[in-house]
């Protein structure tokens, strides 16, 4: 009889263990199903948001005055920041790459190399990331606080379509202004590169620019400009989506701004990767 006693104890333990592990498994499954469901809901919300923006963009009562105001805010008010970062971008790139090129005896390639890398990759991506931080977070915080303080609802009861007035104007302004800011940053980057080249050498301004642009072709500009429009659209969309769909408390304003920056930056990198792949397949 004593020999069988441990068996009697083990069976319930095993049963308990099985029940517990099954319970844990079902809890995990439910949690994963819920998060998958939330993810799919988010995706469908974003798609519906984009469809609404497209629909409202082509509606008759386009808010042109507000669109111009947003172009001024996004474009003109970002100029100081983009000027500084653009110039430093070219300057640093030149200072870092000059010694290597000297070692290879290819210092004359410096202007062309800097110009191509700025125009094709560094200018668009770094400027877009800075814009994601400045413009994306600004939109997220502004629309988020408008939502929390019932300003969006107040707009709605004033017979104004808040989607058309707040979202469409911002997304379109970002889509138009960010490519212009990127071109401006490219130009200042090349200027910064000339300044960098003159720290240790003596290079004539006209000679530097003629050397730089002798290597740059139209095909270097085109993909960069096209992807810049997508960067602008992504930054505008994410900023507005996060702000417009912010929660009710004041905490949600911070969350909206923060998540707008994180998601916009991530999407800029992903769009860049896709653009590079497409360019690689089609052109080079």
């Amino acid at each position: 009889m004593k020999k069988f006693t441990p068996v009697k104890i083990v069976i319930p333990k095993l049963r308990n263990a099985t029940e517990q592990s099954l319970k844990k498994l079902s809890e995990k499954t439910i949690a994963k199903t819920v998060s998958a469901n939330n993810f799919l809901t988010d995706i469908s919300d974003v798609l519906l948001f984009i469809i609404r923006i497209i629909k409202e963009t082509f509606s008759r009562n386009f808010e042109f005055k507000e669109f111009l105001h947003q172009c001024f805010k996004i474009g003109y008010k970002s100029l100081p920041l983009i000027s500084i970062t653009g110039t430093i971008m070219g300057l640093v790139l030149t200072i870092q790459s000059r010694p290597v090129l000297v070692n290879f005896g290819a210092v004359t390639m410096l202007p062309g190399m800097v110009a191509i890398s700025l125009i094709r990759e560094m200018g668009p991506v770094i400027t877009a990331l800075i814009c994601a931080g400045k413009i994306g977070s600004g939109m997220g915080a502004e629309l988020g606080s408008m939502k929390v303080t019932e300003q969006i609802e107040a707009m709605e009861v004033s017979s104004t379509n808040p989607m058309r007035f707040l979202v469409v104007t911002r997304v379109l302004a970002a889509t138009l202004m960010i490519p212009l800011l990127i071109l401006y940053a490219d130009a200042l980057g090349i200027f910064g590169s000339w300044a960098g080249a003159n720290i240790k050498g003596d290079l004539n301004f006209v000679l530097f620019f003629s050397q730089a642009f002798s290597h740059v072709k139209f095909i270097d500009f085109l993909p960069a400009v096209i992807k810049s429009f997508f960067f602008g659209a992504v930054i505008g969309l994410v900023g507005c989506y996060k702000g417009y769909n912010a929660g009710r408390g004041t905490e949600s304003v911070g969350v909206a701004a923060n998540s707008a920056v994180v998601l916009a930056s991530l999407l800029v990198i992903i769009v860049d990767l896709i653009a590079v792949q497409i360019t690689d397949m089609l052109i080079l």
């Binding site: 303080t149 609802e153 107040a154």
Partner: peptide, 11 residues
Amino acid sequence: GFLFQSGALYD
């Protein structure tokens, strides 16, 4: 006309 609790003036 709707008067909101927070006033909802455009900041």
